[in-house]
Design a protein around this nucleic acid. Structure first.
Length: 186
DNA sequence: GTGCAGATCCCCT
DNA sequence: GGGGATCTGCACG
């Protein structure tokens, strides 16, 4: 697993550094894993698009807690999104949204969870990958630096990172806090 | 290939 | 009571 201090840096820095790392998910003996290919940074008082922009609430409290834990939230009435709490210690809250992964292990299980068999659209979206890996609100607050049924470990080396505006938000669209890599050309 | 409507729950005001 | 860090299917052409 990645150590705790990997997440104890500026949220934007962690969002870049975590590209190419591997998410591992274990369910009853079967193992799924994938390489992180797209992320977004969400910070605190300087980021109106962040769930932690305002005060601390029951929903966002994990973003104010210890780094390296999972922040899972439910949205649009049917989807879960998966974040990792990460911030420099002089900032109160922050998290990195995992938007896409490249499937490596357990593709059959992933296809079953998604209910489709094609390989392109399996995990290329924030709600798709949570469905694919079976991540739900039961993972809210889970420590990702411990060996459990969900954690993050070192992965592959990265060459080029592409910076873009974040997706699906209406505030702070000037910030280029969406980061992705191209595995094919890596 | 593009674009839009519908699904449908939880949290915050 | 309103809107959201989304995905899918269907319509159109």
């Amino acid at each position: 697993m990645l150590p705790r201090d990997f997440y104890n840096k500026d949220t934007v820095t962690v969002a870049r550094n975590i590209l190419g790392k591997r998410i591992v998910r274990k369910i009853k003996g079967s193992v799924m894993a994938g390489i992180i290919t797209e992320t977004e940074a969400y910070r605190h008082s300087d980021d109106p698009a962040s769930h932690a922009f305002g005060k601390q609430t029951d929903r966002n409290k994990v973003m104010f807690g210890e780094v390296g834990h999972a922040y899972v939230y439910f949205t649009y009435g049917m989807h879960y999104c998966f974040n990792v709490v990460a911030r420099h210690s002089n900032i109160k809250a922050g998290a990195v949204l995992i938007r896409a992964i490249e499937p490596e292990k357990g593709i059959k299980k992933i296809q079953k969870n998604r209910g489709i068999t094609n390989t392109k659209n399996l995990t290329n979206g924030p709600a798709k990958l949570t469905q694919a890996l079976g991540i739900t609100k039961e993972h809210y607050g889970v420590d990702l630096t411990q060996d459990s049924n969900l954690y993050i470990e070192d992965g592959i080396k990265i060459k080029k990172i592409y910076d873009s505006p974040r997706v699906g938000i209406k505030k702070a669209t000037d910030k280029l806090w969406n980061f992705k890599i191209n595995i094919e050309k890596n």
